[in-house]
Design a protein around this nucleic acid. Structure first.
Lengths: 208, 208
DNA sequence: TCGTGTATATTCACTGGTCAGTATACATCA
DNA sequence: TGATGTATACTGACCAGTGAATATACACGA
């Protein structure tokens, strides 16, 4: 593997090029030749490092898993307030990202759509695992916040709102939907919180 | 146009074949030849009725707009209870549909993903219009139910949960997410309803 | 230190196949 | 006879994947 200190390993360069093109244009719209050219490599070299285009797709998605989750966790940790505020901030940060004209939605969801006729495709497994990891992380956060047995249902509902945001904003190109999602998520969480605002702001009846 | 009483007009046959194939396999995965063959027509005939594959895609989506909305409206109308129950029934009906192994999610969302690199494509405009029609219909329903100025926000939130359901269930193939969406939607609606259950079920304090 | 073998890494040129779209001609019917 | 509709057969582009040869790096024995 010939390279200077300033160049990435070939395999990394290919994955990076694939990531930009697949995410930017769509998996099926991008040819292996285009990826190879963008990576500055011949197609044959690409096929030395990856068995097939499907392999490359899976490798590309795999590299997105950890950073994506880490970004969510960072947004969550950096936000002041209770767990509802922290979750709401996920959506406002997403809205900020979605305002960028190059924003193209969620690569995992988009891949599952593009490969809908190949149910066993490894990339779909990777997408499922990623979404599950986000859901599990939310579940822990809700459990720690003391929502009790609602944690699982809440985690799923936030996932639904997140992925709904991706889908709706990709279609309408209107990130303000994400603010509506933030509002929905924090309302749902708050009514499950021990010191539930929706209920506790009501006067407590005398006989309690 | 040669045909007997039992055959559809050629154009309709083509659109119907395109619908089955595009929805079943994905737009980019299906060739014009495949559509023509399924319609029992030569490709040249197909190109007589449609200027291009893009034209055919748009025509296919167009035929799904009205029936899709009508189905939602039927499910809504056939459900007993308040508006929250009626909306919840949309999700449980969707879950029932999604349990069918041939279920493939929402054609409008999937098209917007497959054509993400062609922002001005007519099919995307059709998809936007469809989603907007559903949202507007929900808005009217919420307004009539007396949620006041919350109607717009609620309609958007239900859309987010609907499209989130499509995306998540397509990925995980687990329709039970739709029950979580139903729960979220009806909670959100109920807290906005004049006789809000979340608040009114609490005992009324003596001094009110 | 000089070969020499071997695994890694890369290139050029190619194949077989598919795809969207078309040129041309034939048929049917008002 | 002219508009509508359908068929056969084709074009040119593209695409995933491959064959065969070459270059580099390094290990090890003489």
């Amino acid at each position: 593997m010939l390279m200077t200190s300033s160049t990435l390993p070939t395999r990394e360069r290919i994955i990076r090029a694939a990531g930009k093109l697949f995410h930017g244009e769509g998996i099926r719209a991008v040819s292996v030749d285009a990826v190879a050219e963008k990576a500055g490599v011949t197609k044959r070299t690409l096929y030395y490092h990856f068995r097939s285009k499907d392999d490359l797709i899976a490798a590309y998605l795999d590299t997105r898993d950890q950073p994506n989750l880490a970004l969510f966790q960072r947004w969550f940790a950096e936000t002041e307030g209770d767990v509802a505020d922290k979750v709401a901030s996920l959506f406002s940060n997403l809205a900020r990202a979605a305002r960028h004209p190059e924003w193209k939605g969620c690569g995992f969801l988009r891949t599952s759509v593009e490969l809908v006729n190949l149910p066993g495709h490894p990339a779909i497994t990777i997408g499922r695992a990623h979404k599950k990891r986000v859901e599990d992380w939310l579940f822990s956060a809700f459990t720690e916040a003391g929502v009790g047995e609602n944690a699982l249902q809440l985690a799923r509902q936030v996932i639904l709102l997140l992925d709904g945001s991706f889908a709706v904003v990709l279609l309408h190109r209107d990130p303000s939907y994400m603010e509506a999602a933030a509002d929905a998520a924090s309302r749902l969480i708050r009514t499950a919180l021990p010191g539930s605002a929706a209920i506790d702001r009501l006067p407590v009846p005398d006989y309690l």
